[in-house]
Design a protein around this nucleic acid. Structure first.
Lengths: 341, 341
DNA sequence: ATATTAGATGTAACTGATTACATCCGTTAG
DNA sequence: CTAACGGATGTAATCAGTTACATCTAATAT
């Protein structure tokens, strides 16, 4: 069923059919009704390709994301999806697994299919590749990272500030030995976290022993990392984990191996999740405005799409702040002082 | 940059360009090289719309899913995505939030855009609506449910059997009072679970007190449900939760309100997740082959797409079995008998 | 009564690919 | 020497829409 058949059946021309769909106010109400009736009866839906071919717009954006396991990413997806739907856009979903080859492939796909915009949550592609996409007329947002990336819009959470606050919190509780369990697959974020962490340490003026431990994301890896440190007696007195998965793994390992939290190990996480408040003790963590982040990113993207200005100059930025959720996993000042007696 | 310009620049006709892309073996190697060089130099990518318009295929499938929070769904998504990518298909992602209106809207979108197939994880649409999509030539798989749904392919996990095994396990441990905490938003699955549960109870021949509690999914709802039961002294001696989120909430509530697990409450979950083995005690749960499920669903879908036979008759089915992971949350036989002394 | 105008509708060009069919040309067979 | 053939390439129709421009009608202005 195509537009010409509908036109024939309704006894009008194809232009009228098209107008009924795109500029209904230009069509006489009775004609419009007749056409709509035929459409309904014939179960007609306009062909998206013919449409896209003419209009040059696909009303589609793509989302490149490294994984969907993390709560943060889920909420980013949800935020983007919500805004996209409200604007009538469809979303291509590409789980890149953080793999550059898959990103490349996905971005090719985006160009082929003339998506109207791309939101990168994962981005390992060289800057020039992204530039190329933009030169092809595709606005790109980078969600969640502030790395210079070739995108015209950046939208991220201030992890440096978050790490700074979390570290200050630990220092204010009297801790003098603080470890940082990083995620080696998130190099850029790790650098930010380290910066905030070391900044807070420096600023405190105290002599704090610090230690960076490289690790991988996820409960299991957190578990193994903690297990290793405990066995080697290298466990710091306080530990900031880069992700809630890791933190949960650490707390479990501590439990299993008889290390008391927070008495022997103060634990904090750079990201919050429902489980952080469920475990025992509940874990002090940074609550990320991930849903907001997704929505903000989508809005910025649609701004670029609609304004079509695509200046290749300085990218627009939007920075969201995480919120420190103090729970019980870091102990409290009183306790720390007792320990130091 | 379109095919004509490339043709002009390479000094050949459009047909040759098209052949280079679609049937390279039909083109003289030197011509081919020349064309490819121009393409690369001009950064040309074929227009997907023009292509789809001709071929009638979009190499795109859609995925309608009610949420991405559950581990099971994440793994389904991952499975589908993996197969889709390996076949060169793109995936439209529609988070329906289990909302029928959004499903309707999404399915309309699928028809408009001529997706080659739809995988429903969430499906509240009337059967006729799905049939309509199929009459429009779109194969539909229903992932995860076995409800008659108008789809041509069903692909699901046998929750009835799972509930049966879980219940038998509890009965074998000597439990005589077993509750079922359901998820009212998953009515069909609840019915399956109930069937398996009651089947096992009946088959045991023992006089078992049963109780169905309606509830909602998620950690918080599990917590509240347990809290309510504990306060009203209605907590059964053993409880099967419909989801791992609920179960985690229950275990937390038990902890907070001083109910010992498994000593005073035996707890099991119909779905497993990493957290189930992390909490204390680790929760006995059904491990769902969700990744396999996604992959199987995608394969069935591509089968339908490629064979284009779309018989509107009896749907093809694929049933996967969950696996019982016995952990510590249900206690053991010895202990139960002690209690009964 | 005629010119003007606005609103409704129609005609046909155009979007960018694919591909059936036509053409051209060099090779081989008769 | 010519016919037949087949490989490489070109021509033009086609897919299903959108829309600039043309046309027609009827109402209003002069």
């Amino acid at each position: 069923m195509n537009i010409r058949k509908v036109a024939e059946m309704a006894g009008v021309s194809v232009a009228t059919i098209s107008r009924v769909l795109n500029h209904p106010e230009q069509v006489l109400p009775e004609t419009r009704e007749r056409v709509l009736a035929v459409m309904k009866e014939q179960n007609y839906t306009p062909n998206w390709f013919a449409r896209g071919l003419n209009l040059g717009t696909t009303h589609t954006i793509a989302l490149l994301i490294p994984n969907i396991e993390s709560e943060t990413n889920q909420r980013i997806i949800s935020g983007i999806e919500t805004i996209a739907r409200s604007k009538g856009y469809a979303v291509f979903f590409c789980n890149t697994h953080g793999d550059q080859a898959i990103e490349e492939e996905s971005l090719d796909m985006c160009e082929n299919r003339r998506v109207d915009g791309v939101a990168f949550v994962s981005l390992n592609l060289p800057e020039e590749r992204v530039q190329q996409a933009r030169e092809n007329g595709i606005p790109c947002v980078h969600v969640g990272k502030n790395r210079s990336s070739g995108c015209d819009t950046l939208c991220y959470i201030d992890f440096e500030e978050g790490a700074y606050r979390l570290t200050r919190h630990l220092i204010s509780l009297g801790h003098e030995e603080i470890g940082l369990l990083l995620d080696s697959s998130e190099r850029h974020r790790s650098a930010q976290i380290e910066a905030g962490f070391l900044g807070a340490v420096r600023e405190s003026g105290k002599k704090i022993r610090t230690k960076q431990i490289s690790g991988e994301a996820g409960v299991q890896n957190g578990y193994f990392a903690a297990q290793r440190m405990i066995k080697r007696k290298e466990l710091p007195r306080a530990l900031i984990a880069a992700g809630d998965g890791q933190a949960l793994g650490v707390i479990k390992a501590a439990q299993d191996l008889g290390v008391a939290v927070p008495d022997e190990l103060a634990l904090a996480s750079m990201t919050d999740s429902p489980m952080c408040s469920i475990v025992n003790p509940p874990i002090t963590a940074l609550e990320l405005p991930a849903n907001k982040l997704g929505m903000a990113a989508a809005r910025l993207l649609f701004d670029s799409i609609e304004n079509k200005e695509l200046e290749l100059g300085v990218p627009q930025e939007m920075i969201l702040q995480p919120k420190l959720k103090i729970r019980k996993s870091c102990g409290n000042t009183k306790y720390i002082y007792e320990l130091f007696d």
